[in-house]
Each structure stands twice: as C-alpha cells, then as structure tokens.
Amino acid sequence: MLEKLKELGVLSPRKAEDYKKAWYKFSRNPLSIAGLAIVILVVALAILAPYVTPYPHHAGFFVDYDNANQPPSLAHPFGTDQFGRDVLTRIIFGFRYSLMMAATVLAIVTPPGVILGLIAGYYRDRWPDIVIMRVADIFVAVPPLVLALAICSVLEPNIFNAMMAVSLMWWPWYTRLVYGMASSLRMEPFVQAAEIVGASKFHIMFKEILPNCLGAILTKVTLDAAWVIILGSALSFVGLGAQPPTPDLGTMLSDGAKYMPGIWWITVFPAIAIAVIVLGFNLLGDGIRDVFAAEAH
C-alpha cells in the first residue's frame, strides 16, 4: 500500500521509508499486531454499528418483553436483556460511547497538558515551572474517581459531565510526562545550539523539544484510551455517567448485575467487551512504544 501511495505522489519516498521502518519495528511483536487488529475492529464496528448489528433499533429505547432475558442463541448470539433487547447489538453500539468518551477526553486533555508541560520544562526551576507543576500536583493528589464522582453528583449526571470530570483530573499526567522530558531535553546540546544561534523560545519549545516528545505522548494517549474507557464505564456503572437507555458498556454492566448469576449474559458479555477493548489499546500502546524506542544495538 505504501508503494502505491509513493507512486501516486501522495507520499514522499522519504516518508514512505519512515513508515516502512516504523511498521517493521511495530510488527516485530505479534501482540502489537493483535492490539492494532482489535482496535481497528472495534473502531470499524462502532462506526458501522447501524449496518452491522442485527437489531439496530434495539440500541435505544425499545421494549419487547416477550423476548426478555433469552439466553444466547442463533438469533441473539449474546442473548437478550431484561427488556428483550439484543445484547450484541447494544455492545456494538456501546463501543461508540466508549470510543467517543476516550477520544473526547484525550482531545480535550492532551493539548493543554502538553503545552503546560513544555512551558514548565523549558523554564525549569523558575516561576512558570513552580506555578504549573504545583497546580498539577494538587490535581494529581485528588483521587481521580473521587473527583469525578463529586463533580457528577453535584452537577447533572450525564455523559458530558462525566467527560468533563475525567478531563479535569487527567491533564496533569500529560504535563508531568512532558515536563520530565522537556526539562532534560532542555539541557541537550541541540537545544543549546539553537539558543546560541538566537532561536526564539517558541521555536525551541515547539520545533526542537516537542518533536522529541511526540513518541512518548502518542504512546501515553493510546494507553490512556484504555484507562478513560475503564473510568467512564466505572462512572456509568455507579449511575453517574451515561444514563439508560444509552447503550453504554458500564451502564449495561450495572443493569445486568441485578440479574446475576442466573441471567449472566447481560453482564458477562459487556464485561468481556470492556476487557477486549482495554486490552487492544494496551497492546497497541506497547507497539507504538516499540516504534519510538531508541534502536538498541
């Protein structure tokens, strides 16, 4: 595929070579490929949910008591829930919410977290460092779930507030990651060389230091996607995130828990789904880390 793109002129030979090399490093570990496959599969299912699910109309508010609590069968591979809705359908739609939550939170959190970390790292031991990092410490000190629970219980419990709550406690981790890297890269001769030449602070932070942090940031984003999904599901599970009838995996878990162990499929399949998606992102994250890891001789 890379060759095709190269011929079409979309990709410079230079970039094509870079991607080829990255793929070589990534694909050395079969688990990374498994992770990538899982994530691609989940994302594709989520996007195409209305077309690939057997009962798309079961995703929202739908009741069919005649078919309630059916065990797994050919018609309903994962069974049906207490309202007679197809569990498989709802899991696939549930991926949408999980992924949306992860994408939104990380999109909100990463840019400010990274920029604050860059600034604090550049001004190491001076006032911007002290102010930013102490504020970050305060946020880190509050247990994440507690803060999220507090916010969601004070405000209206819904998926939007849940995401805001999670974002509020997530950014300091990016600040800390980038701070650590930036404050040591700051002393690297290539940064000193740029300073001697007279380059601006903006150039040094964003053109010299940031590109060297991207690999670690991307790795963290991937691994964090799994964490955000777990946390979002946890919030929904205790009733502070997505509300019924939204087909959220966490909500499904809490709904189904009432019927355990007799009608196990309502709970077990969403739980497995969460586990698979989390595993996928973790494996993918490890693979991305391999790509950016320094070539060991």
């Binding site: 001769p189 000193q192 060389a193 001697i196 030449v197 007279g198 380059a199 590109p211 060297n212 991207l214």
Partner: peptide
Amino acid sequence: KIQMVFQDPATSLNPKRTIKQIIELPLKVH
C-alpha cells in the same frame, strides 16, 4: 558573531529535524 561546535554531533543535532532544517535555522533567525 560567536558560535560554538559541540563535542558530540549525535546530541548537538536534533534527531527529529532534517539537515536542511538544522542548517537553515541560523539563516532564518538572522
């Protein structure tokens, strides 16, 4: 007027920037 050449070129050249970007930085700044 005052420039410097460092000991280890592996660390004094940013690994994420091309040779052109590295050499043109002083040209652009000045």
